[in-house]
Design a protein around this nucleic acid. Structure first.
Lengths: 150, 150
DNA sequence: ACTGAAACACCCGTTAA
DNA sequence: TTAACGGGTGTTTCAGT
């Protein structure tokens, strides 16, 4: 847990809304010289507060319109089994989120596919090939009254 | 809905995992010249398929932000009860996402709070005051091996 | 402040309708 | 022949020291 001053908060706020802003522009906006600003950004990256950058895509323009939440239980609770499962989820493009959770099952996935047969394929080819998976429960999203994803 | 060729898919895939890759490196990875690659990226931005770029922040390092997924079942399945519940979720600032799902329960929530006592308060004051709520199951997030939220 | 590298605008060559 | 697309070049701007 790290303490942030006002300038670092501003830096994070700017980078959150525009991850491709140039260091020069960012420095202007937060009121620092370019070099001082760069040092802060690199420090934030080094400490992992900024854990990466990514493009935000509009998936409704790409045909990925069905969202399914999947609860996954593992039969083995060894670290290597968990790692293997996580690796498979990271690799699978249909998996948008993979959360390790407390409770009766180990993982909650958010899966996005273009239609139900694609989901069936994901179910069989991705989840079905993981030997350590002991339970799968799928919840198809019927809509999202609220969605404030960052 | 827009048709993507193989190269554009590759570009999107790269930018999704590394939104700050240089155009030069991106061009190398997708097998184009820098200028051709830049044209494609700008076209993707112009058409809105790429709707922005953002830094991914690790909120756990910024003051103990806790994410809880909550499955909520309703006792009444009337439209007005569902509406009332959804209204309450929209109003509650702790609720980041509220999804209506198929299956044994009606809703899946993503709740973000600063600590467990805040969650307890949410549980009691927000969920506990909704008379139509018949079941609440909380899953605390222990971490997210993958999180590609848009 | 300085240097190498990247972004960007511009022009040319090729191909296919 | 012209529209679409990839490649190359020069100038401006940036990142990093």
């Amino acid at each position: 847990m790290i303490e942030l001053d006002k300038i670092n908060s501003k830096i994070l706020h700017e980078l959150e809304s525009n991850g491709r802003i140039s260091n020069t522009d960012l420095a202007l906006r937060v009121g620092l010289s370019a070099s001082a600003c760069l040092r802060r950004v690199q420090e934030l990256e080094r400490t992992g507060i900024i854990s990466g950058y990514r493009a935000k895509l509009d998936r409704s323009k790409l045909g990925g319109n069905i969202t399914v939440f999947v609860m996954v239980g593992l039969s083995e609770h060894l670290k290597k089994d968990a790692r293997a499962f996580e690796e498979a989820m990271i690799t699978a493009p249909q998996v948008r989120e993979c959360h390790n959770i407390t409770g009766s099952v180990e993982y909650l996935l958010r899966v996005e596919v273009s239609n139900l047969s694609s989901y069936k394929e994901f179910h069989a080819e991705v989840l079905g090939t993981q030997s350590q998976v002991s339970s799968i429960t799928s919840y198809i999203s019927l809509g999202s009254p609220k969605d404030m994803r960052a």
